[in-house]
Lab assay of single mutants.
Amino acid sequence: MMAYMNPGPHYSVNALALSGPSVDLMHQAVPYPSAPRKQRRERTTFTRSQLEELEALFAKTQYPDVYAREEVALKINLPESRVQVWFKNRRAKCRQQRQQQKQQQQPPGGQAKARPAKRKAGTSPRPSTDVCPDPLGISDSYSPPLPGPSGSPTTAVATVSIWSPASESPLPEAQRAGLVASGPSLTSAPYAMTYAPASAFCSSPSAYGSPSSYFSGLDPYLSPMVPQLGGPALSPLSGPSVGPSLAQSPTSLSGQSYGAYSPVDSLEFKDPTGTWKFTYNPMDPLDYKDQSAWKFQIL
């Protein structure tokens, strides 16, 4: 009977010793046993002879290597770790002494450095960015050149030099007046198309007034536009458009034309069986010896 009264063996659950049927240790109110408190290391007290050895090595170098620390530790009968900690504390003490010396050398008012006064946003004049500046400075420094007289040679050079070769001289006033084509001369031969040399188009003023001019072949195509416009036809070669000034309004060009419109200028042929003959000019830059190549039959 006494065997049943004795408590059973101890069981360990999660490293906790349980005594038989008792489960009081598993209750929430019972805390787990805490780790033992780490003991504080005792402070090391250095003797005068030990301090002399350490100070002598510190005077040589503030960062001794492990071999120098072990050698000193053997002399003063201390572990190497204590020597390492002593050098660490000695360097910190040396830095603190240097900072105190710097503070003593500075004057009393030198510690508080005078800061520059901050400028207020409204006091300083700042350039306004509302208006974009002129990058080319046209509004201040540029002045347009004065327009020359209508009959000045410089204007003629600016007008005619675009179309004339570089080897030719500017046309005088008398020749510029001949550039304007007359109405009857352009409409006299509506079906004849003559190819003149390129030099005649640039230099010869008579080429624009003769039936064999460069633009005589364009007349049949330009004249039928007159009834559609409801007024006189516009002429690209009329009046002052080739003269001194090219800047004319469309209203000033509306009254200039080749001449009176005639039914002869239409595109319809009077004789459907007729042929169109292209007159060959020996001055043509295209060297075609066979003139029969310039004739064709309209079917």
Score class of each variant (00 low, 15 high):
Ala3His: 03
Asn6Cys: 14
Asn6Asp: 05
Pro7Gln: 01
Pro7Val: 13
Pro9Asn: 00
Tyr11Ile: 08
Asn14Asp: 01
Leu16Ser: 01
Leu16Asn: 00
Val23Leu: 06
His27Phe: 15
His27Leu: 14
Val30Thr: 02
Tyr32Glu: 01
Ala35His: 07
Ala35Arg: 07
Gln39Cys: 08
Arg40Val: 15
Arg41Cys: 13
Glu42Asp: 05
Glu42Gln: 04
Arg43Asp: 11
Phe46Ser: 14
Ser49Ile: 03
Leu51Pro: 14
Glu53Trp: 10
Leu54Val: 13
Leu54Asn: 15
Glu55Ala: 13
Glu55Lys: 10
Phe58Ser: 12
Ala68His: 10
Glu71Phe: 10
Val72Leu: 08
Ala73Ser: 10
Leu74Gln: 03
Leu78Trp: 13
Val83Ala: 11
Gln84Ser: 06
Gln84His: 09
Lys88Gly: 13
Lys88Arg: 15
Asn89Asp: 15
Ala92Lys: 14
Arg95Ser: 10
Gln96Tyr: 06
Gln100Arg: 09
Gln104Val: 08
Gln105Tyr: 02
Pro108Ile: 07
Gln111Glu: 08
Arg115Asn: 03
Lys118Asp: 02
Lys118Pro: 01
Lys120Asp: 01
Ala121Arg: 10
Ala121Leu: 07
Pro125Val: 08
Thr129Ala: 07
Val131Ile: 05
Pro133Glu: 02
Leu136Ala: 05
Leu136Ser: 03
Ile138Asn: 06
Pro144Trp: 09
Gly148Thr: 01
Thr155Phe: 15
Thr155Leu: 11
Val157Leu: 04
Val157Ile: 11
Val160His: 00
Val160Arg: 05
Ser161Phe: 14
Ala166Met: 03
Ser167Gln: 03
Leu171Gln: 10
Leu171Ser: 05
Gln175Arg: 13
Leu179Thr: 06
Ala181Lys: 10
Ser182Ile: 15
Tyr191Ile: 06
Thr194Met: 11
Tyr195Ile: 09
Ala196Glu: 01
Pro197Phe: 11
Ala198Thr: 06
Ser199Tyr: 15
Ser206Asn: 00
Ser206Arg: 13
Gly209Asp: 03
Pro211Met: 07
Tyr214Trp: 07
Phe215Ala: 01
Phe215Val: 03
Ser216Arg: 07
Leu218Val: 03
Asp219His: 13
Pro224Tyr: 12
Pro224Ile: 13
Pro227Gly: 10
Gly231Phe: 14
Leu234Arg: 06
Ser235Gln: 02
Pro236Leu: 15
Pro236Met: 13
Val242Lys: 09
Val242Gln: 06
Ser245Met: 07
Ser245Tyr: 08
Ala247Val: 09
Ala247Met: 09
Gln256Glu: 04
Ala260Arg: 10
Phe269Asn: 00
Pro272Cys: 12
Thr273Asp: 00
Trp276Thr: 00
Lys277Asp: 00
Lys277Pro: 00
Thr279Pro: 00
Pro282Lys: 09
Asp284Ala: 14
Asp284Arg: 14
Ser292Gly: 10
Trp294Ala: 00
Lys295Phe: 14
Leu299Trp: 06
